[in-house]
Design a protein around this nucleic acid. Sequence first.
DNA 1: ATAAAAGTGGGAAAAAGTGGGAAAAATGCT
DNA 2: AGCATTTTTCCCACTTTTTCCCACTTTTAT
Lengths: 154, 154
Amino acid sequence: MKSLIGEYHCKLDAKGRFLMPSGLRKQLPEDQQNDFVINRGLDKCLVLWPLSVWEKESAKIRALNSYDPKRRAFQRMFFSGAREVQLDGSGRVLLTSFLIEHAGLGKELVLEAQSDRVEIWDKTAFEGWMEDPGYDFGMLAEEVMKDLGSGEGG
Amino acid sequence: MKSLIGEYHCKLDAKGRFLMPSGLRKQLPEDQQNDFVINRGLDKCLVLWPLSVWEKESAKIRALNSYDPKRRAFQRMFFSGAREVQLDGSGRVLLTSFLIEHAGLGKELVLEAQSDRVEIWDKTAFEGWMEDPGYDFGMLAEEVMKDLGSGEGG
DNA sequence: ATAAAAGTGGGAAAAAGTGGGAAAAATGCT
DNA sequence: AGCATTTTTCCCACTTTTTCCCACTTTTAT
């Protein structure tokens, strides 16, 4: 699958639905435009996974030894917040109340595409994070990229 | 079987019953939607096993050398609280008072899918655990996933 | 300017969830 | 054993939630 890119803004309606922005949808292969999994993100956001991506990723998590407390805790966190979703007739995603609460979503959302998945943020929270991410991007870039050898990050 | 996912909220009624949430039931193969085993979980919860999963998992435990005191103790812990259950006509599970007490279940439950089994928590206890699992999920993700190569956990 | 696509809101049918009563089974007492 | 009492099981009926679909508005493209 091609890398997903872009930041999209959309609105959560009274029933907890938002429209998948068509620009984002068009980036996906046709047979993967309708089925997704949403789970809790590691930051204060949700993550939307195209189903095929989810299946690969979840298989890894599932393979962990669940008799080890840390791995079990991680599995719990990863699987419990997850929910399979399909787009409705108008191309919208319906969120459950506990997912909305987890990410503190208000009326305005930001969808942030990230290689093969999409993060879902509350607009205000996202802007706040952008202003003060707790890291300096220059330093971060250096640290994250230093082992990669060739190529500097644009 | 596909990975079971999701967090579902339900209520324990005066008779000690709760409705299997339809979202969870639908994730199971049709011939496995009615028969389960419930036993004590490793954390303060119960575990609901689809019968076929139980058979595989319990075979592993049974195979442990029971002449070793620690293994014998673990076997006892694993099997003693176990109970086979079926759904009633309305799709509900009836719990025994023994199991209710073990997990400290009140009126509100959280069912939390974990790959091929389902944990049953008291709602307050679950929320408490989520707020303070004793781990930072970001750190946990890093530690647990670091050997797996590509991909981060959501 | 007009048509097509994208985005929004809400109502009605269907499904899920809940509580409780009656029948059946198990238990205990004389 | 026979009867009474408690416990369990099964089923019915009501309420709430969810799902699905329709219709309208706004934006984009030609």
